[in-house]
Nucleic acid binder design. Sequence first.
DNA 1: ACGCATTCAATTGCGAACAATTAAATGTGA
DNA 2: TCACATTTAATTGTTCGCAATTGAATGCGT
Lengths: 156, 156
Amino acid sequence: MRFSMARKLSTLDPQRLDNQICFAVYSAAHAFNRVYKPLLDRLGLTYPQYLVMLVLWERDDVPVKDIGEKLFLDSGTLTPLLKRLEAAHLVKRTRSSEDERQVLIALTPQGHALKEKARSVPQSILAASDCSVAELVAMKDEIVALRDRLNAVIGE
Amino acid sequence: MRFSMARKLSTLDPQRLDNQICFAVYSAAHAFNRVYKPLLDRLGLTYPQYLVMLVLWERDDVPVKDIGEKLFLDSGTLTPLLKRLEAAHLVKRTRSSEDERQVLIALTPQGHALKEKARSVPQSILAASDCSVAELVAMKDEIVALRDRLNAVIGE
DNA sequence: ACGCATTCAATTGCGAACAATTAAATGTGA
DNA sequence: TCACATTTAATTGTTCGCAATTGAATGCGT
């Protein structure tokens, strides 16, 4: 009786680490990062750089702001990251002639070519997840919905 | 026909940003961080510091390594973080006398007292999640299971 | 046309996160 | 006991992530 009470209380205590969904998400993000690392090392990319490349492989020659909106990142993060990608000869940064405030990010031939080398990455992640595609899609949709509700509160 | 084909292909393309569960987790973690920030600012804590305090509020006077195992963090992250908590007079760091390699982390009276001030934080997060407790618990369990499978692959 | 707000990227400063290395303490086997 | 491996934190260097600020370009209202 005393034990079951104690157990019940602890599994409901919202101040306990293992009850917090945020820590689950936080620690899962790090776990993903560690799985990605050896795969992305072969491409010479970090995970955030890989995200930027994913955006650019879908649509090229976009302003920094567009990349930021898709990845929920600001210029303080993206400017130095994009300069590193430029130093690696994967992208070119040019001021837009129509709007001199914007910097357009375009892929170099090497940047385009890297897409092929990166083709096997998602499959490796899927394997590491040890989970059916359907389950992962369902989880992804739930997490995205939660994220969007959180972001809505921030804009409030 | 052409349109439905294109749509079907894009929703299955594993190289598309919006199809990647990892980006969902990554961006959700940042969204959580942004929701936590104003709450934790009032406590003078960052989110990782808050996690360390959650661990210490459950059990005090533990070596750095134990904290690292619970949070999946290493000394490269924890040592400077704990020094900042010490500078804020929330914890004390002392070498263990039984094993001089270990540094034991203990709460100061202020560190203990902060637990009360932090009591309302989980409730605020729950409200921002705009989601039932049961749903959050289910999601948390799924994400933890995924994280543990990923971590198992890393140890391989 | 003028003043003024807005937009966009860059910059600065701080706090993670992690790889790789170092150094000291401890444990183990011969 | 002594050599050697292991454990534990600390340190160094690189890259994110974000708040806050700056500065230039653009848009808008009068």
